[in-house]
Design a protein around this nucleic acid. Structure first.
Lengths: 234, 234
DNA sequence: CGTATCCTTGAACCATGTCAAGCAATGTGG
DNA sequence: CCACATTGCTTGACATGGTTCAAGGATACG
């Protein structure tokens, strides 16, 4: 087993991180490995910003990045979180448009960067790669459509309950059964699409109803079924 | 000029309808033409339904189809309208999942159907086709993300104004400067994500403010700039 | 030309946003 | 290590946009 060619460790990790790369042959990987850069990013780093020209895509190997759009009065809407295995920023690169969202590191992250030209070459030379990208895009599209319906039809309380359930699914729980992601109240509000104050009041309501416990930003899940019931998921 | 092979007329129209087909060679088109079916659908026809297994994709040559998701209390959220040149239902086919939305004809439509197997073969044999599909998917993804932010942050009034502006852009105006698409108040509500009554009250407010005129389902656009200003688009 | 669907309006209610004020936690420079 | 600044959190009071319910009128379509 093992690769025949001795690629840098971050390239091996990159390839393992996402199935889009699985069809590439050694030659394509070699070429790619000479163009991919790799960095550690601190919390708060902005990877790209809405309205700017994209220079390439980012592949998250570790850490967490939030993807968001800024509305009229500077209020942000979080579209998704990217974590290990996620590729972000590809939409504007492929459509050759300005970035339509911003990306900011919210947990120290380990990220590879693939320049536009390299990505374009992969698309043109590897049908398998393109096909995997297409699948990825379709999956995100399905999630986005579900999100639209949810935000349009459910109450803030239902949406918050669902957000907690989804965060639990995506990031899991630590040893204390707390959500393994640290978000400010404002960020929670920017997921749910509501005011910070509403989040605070609902979280404390959930606490009173013995669904969760709170210690600062730590949210301990006590009654997952209860949250699912409130969220109206099925 | 003209094609060397004499394909059925609907196949020629299909190929002209959308750039995803532009990279196919005569052999691929010939094969496709033997598998594609073609029908006229009356208003109200259901093409597919949320939760069912998809058998293929639909290419709209003429008419209008609404794509929507049904929420908990039977309330629908319209995700998009498909018209001439649009391909629908591809997400679930490619992801091999059950359909996550429903499609219903709202204006008599002329539609080609491409079975799953044919689509899969095209994807596997034509990198150009796959690439175009990827672009299409990315564009829809961009629109979906914009929609999320809008519905999460804007008031019902702003969203209705924006919906009218977008309908004007997508469907144009007839000779009387009326929107060239006929929607019930309920359908408008299902786009905007609100109650039918709210739409009625806001439409009549817009009428009082000399932005639009109403004659049944006909909506005449009087002051497009005014609508754009209210919508907060820029 | 009757039936079903759609549209409209009023009234009451309430979920949610907004504003204001104070506290807690965290970080920074002297 | 303290003082100060900054940022985030919480709570209360209040305003209001939007939903819901109910009832009657208009319109579309077979």
């Amino acid at each position: 087993m093992g690769t025949k060619i001795d690629f840098p460790e971050h390239i091996n990790e990159l390839i393992k991180s996402n199935s889009v790369f699985k069809h590439l042959d050694d030659e394509q990987i070699l070429e790619l490995s000479q163009e991919v850069t790799h960095s550690q990013y601190k919390k708060g780093t902005e990877l790209y910003r809405e309205g700017n020209r994209s220079k390439g895509v980012y592949c998250v190997l570790a850490g967490v990045v939030k993807i968001f759009k800024t509305g009229l009065e500077g209020k942000n809407q979080i579209i998704k979180f990217a974590k290990s295995g996620d590729i972000i920023g590809y939409r504007s690169v492929l459509s050759e448009e300005l970035a339509c969202s911003s990306a900011k590191v919210i947990e120290e992250a380990n990220i590879c960067f693939i320049p536009t030209d390299s990505l374009t070459r992969l698309i043109n030379s590897s049908p398998g790669f393109t096909k995997e990208m297409l699948l990825m895009s379709c999956n995100e599209l399905g999630e986005a459509n579900a999100f639209i319906t949810e935000i349009a039809q459910k109450s803030v309380k239902e949406r918050l309950a669902e957000a907690l359930v989804i965060l639990k699914k995506d990031f899991g729980l630590d040893k204390n059964r707390c959500l393994d992601i640290s978000l400010t109240r404002e960020e929670l509000a920017n997921i749910v699409g509501t005011a910070t104050e509403s989040i605070i009041r609902l979280l404390s309501e959930f606490k009173n109803d013995n669904l969760i416990e709170l210690q600062g930003r730590k949210i301990r899940i006590i009654d997952l079924q209860g949250l699912i019931r409130i969220s109206g998921m099925y």
